[in-house]
Amino acid sequence: MGRRKVTHQLISDNATRRVTFRKRKDGLLKKIYELTVLCGLPACAIIYSEYKDGPELWPNLNEVRSILNRLSELPVEKQTKYMMDQKDLMNKMIQDAEKKLEKEKMHTRAMKLGLMAGSNDLITDTDCSEELARAADVVDKKLKAIRERIKAVEAGAPIIKRD
């Protein structure tokens, strides 16, 4: 049984929003705890919500104070360099997705070229003009290399035999 796809926008129903907040907050704090244990580094969270008047602190007040002091001691450039908000996170995700897409495109191009080269059907396939252009470049380079080798052989260079 698959999970329901969650639409990423503010939940309009108050009760549902409250339940979602509680469950997801617990999940988030668990993740932070796991990170602190696995990597042995201090981390903290400050959560402001409409369900509590003051902020919720994790893990405790002293830990939060120490991390914030450490943050305030840093120069302004270093403070802001690794600060992320929703927009920055979205941009980063988009960049990662684009990189992944480019990788996949390169992979498919290589596969197409392999298929075309295997079937000797380079001229009739007009759908992938970019791939054909790349293939033409490769062929040109190979031709140049072969012609240079031919000239060298004609000039009397030794022929290297490969097993």
């Binding site: 503010l10 907040f21 907050k25 903290c44 402001y48 914030l68 992320m84």
Partner: peptide, 22 residues
């Protein structure tokens, strides 16, 4: 992953969250 979870929580529940990791 941690930051994306925090972003989802902010987006869905409208909470204001700050997570600091050294």
């Amino acid at each position: 992953t941690l930051f994306s979870k925090a972003a989802d929580l902010c987006l869905l529940s409208g909470a204001n969250i700050a997570v600091f990791v050294t």
